[in-house]
Write a protein that binds this DNA or RNA. Structure first.
Lengths: 123, 123
DNA sequence: CCTATTGTGTTATTCACTTAATACAATAAC
DNA sequence: GTTATTGTATTAAGTGAATAACACAATAGG
């Protein structure tokens, strides 16, 4: 059940993003314990070092913190998580609108298309 | 005026995308001549080999074609360009909705946010 | 015919990412 | 106090992207 990665972006960035998404979406709740580096690495079918690198970044952002032998935990600061969620959403929207503009669709067009287009079929 | 690149994705992929966007948006019209590899490379402040790689992919897709000593030209097939534009838009929308879903927003939420959020300020 | 221009191919080097295989550090649990 | 568990650090090797510096191929234009 190895995770899927985009071969065109560093894996550790994608790992960071996936874990971040789990945090902001609530899949990993505030204060919850994360699986160990080794477990996560095995689940993702990735080298532990790579996962370590991803987690370091989240740690730098204050979203997770490590306790030497107990494991890693999501921050208990719900406001911080909410903030991260808002930032993430805004960033995605900006990127999306910029790209749609480059294609030739303004904001209105984009909204119409989103509502028109079919859901991508799950493979 | 070197172009800006995301350090986390191969430059040649980004070059391909930028040129593709210029084609589907009409900045490079159907049948129009592209700048030479060397000129484009200088403009982007990138190695000509890297640009070559990007253009090869567009060529493979039939969107541009090279004429040995005259230069490179955008395809005259407007239907193909339109098709590429639609595909690109659909792909962007799918990716966007997927990521928003991962953050915790469904399609309706996404639309509301798009209409709510301020335009990103040009830096 | 010559020559400049354009696309294309080759080789070498540098660098970041990733994996692998460990070793070390700290502490909770016993 | 010992031990197992967890995070952290180190070193080496392999891979692909990007750059650099060319050489070669084809042909439009004089």
């Amino acid at each position: 059940m190895a995770w899927q990665f985009d071969p065109d972006r560093p894996i550790y960035k994608q790992l960071r993003e996936r874990i971040l998404l789990k945090i902001v979406s609530g899949a990993y709740g505030a204060g919850a314990q994360l699986p160990t580096v080794r477990d996560l690495a095995e689940e993702a079918a990735v080298n532990p070092n790579t996962l370590q690198k991803a987690l370091s970044e989240l740690e730098r952002d204050g979203l997770v913190h490590a306790q030497r032998t107990s494991g890693r935990f999501v921050t208990g600061d719900k406001a911080l998580i909410k903030q991260a969620k808002n930032d993430l959403a805004k960033e995605q929207i900006d990127l999306f609108l910029k790209k749609m503009a480059a294609i030739g669709y303004n904001r209105q067009d984009a909204v119409v298309l989103i509502q028109t287009i079919e859901e991508a079929k799950p493979k």
